[in-house]
Design a protein around this nucleic acid. Structure first.
Lengths: 346, 346
DNA sequence: TCAGGGGCTGGAAGCGCTTGCATCCGAGCC
DNA sequence: GGCTCGGATGCAAGCGCTTCCAGCCCCTGA
């Protein structure tokens, strides 16, 4: 495998000049640059990232921490981040930490801090203050999506407000018996999202003076199949069946629609269903939802991380800490055909 | 940030001994090892991966190349790989290359060869012989899943045989008008899987002497929503409606079931549907399918890569190339309630 | 004409580890 | 008791780059 030395020899230049030439640095004559390029090309030279990182302190590698790659939201964020980073010539190191706190911690300690990541993007990650301090102490950009981390840059949507919005949509249509399918937090107590969306629902109901029957709050695991089972319970046994369901995710909304169909209920004639996410599947089900475009959020997060890195590298090491931006990502209320006025009493 | 030098000073040992102690190498007295450990602990020392890699040639980093993280199959493989690697203390560098050949190539050239990956796991990746040579030339383990690469280790299932199996299941039930929903290869001509499963279907039909009506072969993009649209075309316009559909993936099978329901067709009374994959969603739909456990395949692929690395590092650099194992992953025929005997003619 | 200055270049010092080699020491042996 | 042997240790040479710094050359302006 050729090293930069071989390239230098072949180009008739010094190692230093070749390094500058290939690295796009200034102070290299066009002629030398071209010679270096050609020599590298001919030898099939590929610089060693490790050596370059060691010498320069830059890694061109950003870490992404997600709890569940399998789920639509996280996979979408991942996709967005991946695309942006790939285009920028950065590597993406993925930490799919799952719900086990233990693994999450070992990831934080053993990996994130090992000086090989330039920045970290954390999706729906809840950290203790000490952990955040630890991460910020290494002076690397930290970007949070789907759950802010104090001190870190963040891309977020106002989940409480959006949850309230969709609930109000149902209320405005005339519904009074509105159920909510929330997220299961048994497996991961750190996962705050379900609680936030739930609070938006409750706020809207309270503001409208509507009762929330305990049976109308069910929990599922954010998957279609989980929601399907939960909705069967909801629609099968609720003493007074709700006329509308707000599911905390589109996948769960779809599961709910499927369960409703199984009971012979027509959506939206007999029951209205709304979700919140913007899942591609929503269209096939005519699902009314709010599109939060997680892929776009991922792209924005990656861009933000890259920008922060740029600023960091172009400023003094002892300069004031860079202020971390906080973006509220725009969302889109998509009204389709899964919502309508409630059925008139038979 | 403390370096190994600080640890050595604090422990009253040499840098060399500390390195050996923390690296778990032999020839270190228990006492020194303990002292080194404690000093490292107290200083919060974290070794620099780059320096270690540069010096040792090991990266503790494995690359995973997938076309679409968003899809169930790939996300599942990713999950399996990720879990195994995390447990082994390895990093996972993800390359979500998408369908663009251009990006795929730049990934191969600029990233994979940059000496920072110990091994590469490629999912459903089709490479030219030259590309494979290039990858193997760097003498790093290469493991393929979902599409073998000549010369590389591979984890695979016999897609043609399995496709034939599910088709035969329908034939055995008495179906003669069996449609097939295949994969869309427009976006990515490299994606061979749809063709292979299609051939299994055709083989089974031919062997049974059954006709394959041109209208009975439709294509979709492997998503529920895509299959839903395609199935609407299939079931809406087919001159003679099929009594059974074999969808090339579970997601497409689900889309087909949804479309059938929209036409007032009951599954399996009016129409039988089978998939092939083992998607978690299958259970909620009573889907008959073959479970190929991609998560398990991912775990096996990671394990294989780690084993190959072990062997490589414990053998001479000039030793004979390590034979690449080829595993056929076991599958599981899951018969549920989406298949039954065909309806009797009205 | 000559000093000054800026653009290029190359030498060499690291970056922070790992590891081959030489050294040292204590235990076991004759 | 002297000698051998092997485990434990430290020294120092890298790993393959980047970048500081000094030096060179040539162009400009006085």
């Amino acid at each position: 495998m050729p090293g930069i030395k071989e390239v230098a020899d072949r180009a008739g230049l010094s190692v230093a000049t070749v390094s500058r030439a290939l690295g796009g640095k200034a102070n290299v004559s066009p002629k030398s640059r071209e010679r270096a390029r050609r020599a590298a090309q001919e030898l099939g030279f590929v610089p060693s990232y490790h050596a370059a990182s060691l010498a320069s302190g830059r890694n061109y590698n950003i870490g992404l921490v997600v709890p569940y790659v399998q789920r639509w939201y996280f996979a979408s964020v991942l996709e967005g981040v991946s695309e942006t980073l790939l285009d920028a010539g950065y590597d993406l190191t993925l930490y799919n930490v799952g719900e086990q706190t233990e693994r999450r911690n070992s990831v934080l300690n053993d990996f994130l801090l090992r000086k090989r990541l330039d920045a970290v993007i954390a999706v729906a990650l809840v950290l203790s203050e000490a952990e955040i301090m630890q991460l910020l102490a290494v002076r690397r950009p930290l970007v949070a999506i789907g759950g802010a981390l104090p001190g870190a840059a963040s891309i977020r949507i106002d989940d409480a407000r959006l949850a309230r919005l969709v609930t109000e949509h149902l209320i405005r249509l005339g519904h009074t018996r509105i159920a909510h399918m929330t997220g299961d937090t048994e497996l991961n107590r750190d996962f705050k999202l379900p609680g936030i969306r739930l609070s938006g629902y409750q706020a809207a109901m309270a503001a409208a003076g509507l009762p929330v029957h305990p049976d109308w709050q069910v929990a599922a695991d954010f998957t279609i199949q989980g929601a399907y089972r939960a909705a069967k319970r909801l629609l099968g046994t609720a003493s007074e069946r709700p006329t509308a369901v707000f599911a905390a995710s589109d996948e769960m909304a779809v599961g709910t629609i499927l369960a409703a169909r199984d009971f012979g209920l027509q959506v939206p004639r007999d029951i209205s269903v709304v979700g919140l996410d913007g899942h591609e599947l929503g269209e096939a089900f005519g699902l009314t939802t709010i599109d939060q475009n997680p892929r776009g959020q991922g792209k924005l997060a990656a861009t933000t991380a890259l920008e922060l890195l740029d600023t960091a590298w172009n400023s003094d090491a002892d300069a004031a800490p860079i202020p971390a931006p906080d973006y509220e990502y725009p969302t889109d209320f998509v009204i389709r055909t899964s919502t309508a006025i409630p059925p008139t009493k038979p």
